Computed example of a mutant assay.
Amino acid sequence: MVVVPKGSFMMGTPAGEPDRFKGEDPIHRVTFAKPFAVGRFTISFDEWDACLADGGCGGNKGDDKGFGRGRMPAQGISFEAAKSYLAWLSRKIGRTYRLPSESEREYFTRAGTTTPFWFGNTVTAQNANYKASIPYGNGPHGPDSKGPAVVDSYPPNPFGLYQVHGNVFEWTEDCFNKRYNEDTPTDGSAWLEGDCSKRMARGGTWDWSANMLRAGYRDGALAYLGYSFRVVRTLNVQP
């Protein structure tokens, strides 16, 4: 895991950002009073299978979709199954692990940047794993991805986190809300009001186009669907 520094950022996307969707506004400031720790990588099948071998995770094997396990991202994981892994890990380590909030996910994806991607205004197949035949903005065409990549593929962002854009969607703790409003938390906590049969997922996936990989893109998914996730831990430090 890596420590993400405290700070603030403007959550959401500006009206002029290419291919943005309704629901990514209004832009609002979110402030993190304390640093927090984040998994450097998406949870891999190696880690998921360790939970299974120890009798945890409810015997849920996930679904590698034929792409293999090992250091590949754990896929086919429902929201509740992800929570069962976090409960197992917390018992095993003796510290409390959790999913990120939606604002934490966008904050550590951006890593101090304001562009659609942490590496700039556009994306290529050298930056992320996605359907690169559909360009983003003035970016180039590229070959479509043939499947997910191992979790330490591609360079890390300035916070040291790998593949925050593309490869696999990751769960956040937040319930689904169509757009931000006056009830949206501004302290980095999860938004637990709204339609909680759906949860917000972030990051995009290998077989979707680049506009859904952007730092500000929001996807509301039924909680029983199979996605991926990474872990977060609140740090016991003074603000």
Rank of each mutant, 00 (worst) to 15 (best):
R202Q: 03
L213Y: 07
L99D: 01
F108T: 12
Y107G: 08
K92G: 02
W171Q: 02
P14Y: 03
D152T: 07
F169H: 11
P5I: 06
P148R: 11
F169T: 04
G216S: 07
A15Q: 13
G203F: 02
I43A: 05
R91T: 06
D183L: 13
A128M: 11
Y162D: 06
R110C: 08
K61P: 12
R202K: 10
P148L: 10
K92H: 08
T96G: 11
A190T: 07
E170F: 00
G55M: 11
A53H: 02
A111P: 04
D219W: 10
A132Q: 13
S153H: 13
P18G: 12
G56P: 09
N177A: 01
V38P: 04
I43N: 02
P155L: 09
A33D: 11
D54S: 12
F229S: 02
I77F: 02
E104T: 03
V123C: 14
P135R: 15
T13R: 05
V30I: 12
R71Y: 03
Y162G: 05
T42E: 04
M10V: 14
Y136T: 10
T124P: 12
K92C: 05
L222V: 09
D63G: 02
N60D: 11
V168S: 02
P239V: 14
K6P: 14
A50C: 08
P116T: 07
G70E: 06
G58V: 09
G62S: 05
K34L: 12
S209D: 13
A190R: 04
T13C: 01
V237Y: 13
I27H: 00
A50N: 00
N236R: 15
S101G: 08
F9T: 12
G220N: 05
G216W: 01
L213E: 08
G12I: 04
P135M: 15
L222T: 09
